[in-house]
């Protein structure tokens, strides 16, 4: 079995290890490029949101290099994400590829561990649990790595490039829980040490749709660009927190839920609730501004947009909303960020 799944930023490493631990050979598609996007756009319906297009392009490129089993997550089917897999499977079959397609539901962990995975990989549920534990640990490591990277990027961009290369290799290499724990500690300490540095000029909270927060290609390397201006980017969303949330082990969510309920009469699906709760949480912690990113025509985030306007008024904190589609140009994006950061700097004075 040559398994493939769409990239989700650094967290792909955790997913890769999960599948490897179950005995699959993982056939990762080439890194996301303009070609991926073009392929995706070519075969997708025109009105669908950008994550659909990018992940479809990802699948096509994976199939081109010989993958035969595809994995895709599905959601609660309140928003479009839940239906990606049905249409993607249909489109790929029409293109003439031979493959097996498994859509993995996020909301049935029991079925996932005891029925679905053992059936697909022909292993015992115990092994699935072990692999799941490894994935959770690994995703925690990825989160810590990303958090540290954000700090060092804001302080010294050149140094961060070396740090990124060095630690990515280390993270990919470790396979045992003990080694992961050691590395986790190391990364946390590094972050603490760097945070004492005075080089950080501004702190900006990043909220929005999860794929756009995790995948740097989708958000046009927004985080990198921000940190080139000496901005520390804060973001809570990661695969680790998502997994914890799904397994109902995330106490911090209650706080976010409480904050969000004031501004949202009912959860409109997707991550609108997290977006709003996290935005309020960041503001209470004292960030200078909030950047909200989402794909063009995203339904839940557009509802959240109205709430964020109100939050911005209530707390007197600037919020920049950016929507992305395949035509978004990087230059335009940079201009908007620069203007926003200028505004934040002036307010700080």
């Amino acid at each position: 079995m040559k398994a493939a799944f769409p990239y989700i930023g650094y967290h792909s490493i955790a997913l890769k290890d999960f599948l490897t631990a179950l005995g699959a050979k993982v056939c990762l598609p080439p890194p996301l490029t303009k070609r991926t996007l073009e392929l995706g756009v070519k075969y997708s319906p025109e009105m669908v949101c950008l994550p659909f297009k990018i992940t479809l392009g990802n699948f096509i490129e994976a199939l081109e290099i010989g993958a035969d089993t595809l994995f895709m997550a599905t959601g609660a089917r309140k928003c479009r994400f839940g239906y990606y897999s049905y249409l993607q499977e249909k489109i790929l079959k029409e293109l003439g590829y031979q493959f097996k397609f498994y859509s993995v539901s996020q909301y049935s962990p029991y079925e996932f561990v005891f029925e679905k995975m053992p059936q697909i990989f022909n292993v015992s549920p115990l092994k699935v649990l072990k692999a799941l534990y490894l994935m959770i640990k690994k995703s925690e490591l990825c989160e810590n790595f990303k958090n540290s990277l954000r700090v060092i990027r804001a302080i010294d961009y050149q140094k961060s490039l070396i740090f990124e290369k060095e630690y990515l290799k280390k993270i990919e290499g470790v396979k045992k829980i003990k080694e992961i724990n050691i590395l986790n500690k190391e990364l946390k300490e590094l972050r603490k040490k760097w945070l004492k540095n005075n080089g950080i000029k501004l702190r900006v909270g990043l909220v929005g749709e999860i794929y756009f927060l995790l995948e740097d290609f989708a958000n046009q390397e927004l985080e990198k660009e921000l940190s080139k201006f000496g901005v520390l980017v804060l973001s809570k969303r990661s695969l680790y927190s998502r997994l914890k949330h799904l397994l109902k082990m995330e106490p911090g969510f209650l706080k976010i839920y409480y904050y969000a309920r004031k501004y949202l009469s009912v959860s409109p699906g997707g991550e609108a609730l997290n977006t709003i709760g996290e935005a309020v949480n960041f503001i209470k912690k004292g960030v200078d501004g909030i950047i909200h990113i989402f794909p063009f025509t995203c339904m839940p985030e557009n509802i959240a947009l109205h709430s964020l306007e109100k939050i911005s008024e209530d707390y007197n904190v600037p919020i920049l909303s950016l929507s992305f589609d395949e035509h978004t140009s990087k230059t335009g994006l940079l201009t908007r960020i620069e203007a926003f950061l200028e505004l934040l700097k002036r307010r700080k004075k």
């Binding site: 309140k78 949202l264 409109p268 699906g269 997707g270 839940p300 509802i303 109205h306």
Partner: peptide, 11 residues
């Protein structure tokens, strides 16, 4: 469900 936007209208 109805649709995220209809649910969001009261908001």
């Amino acid at each position: 469900y109805t649709c995220p936007k209809m649910m969001g209208l009261p908001t």
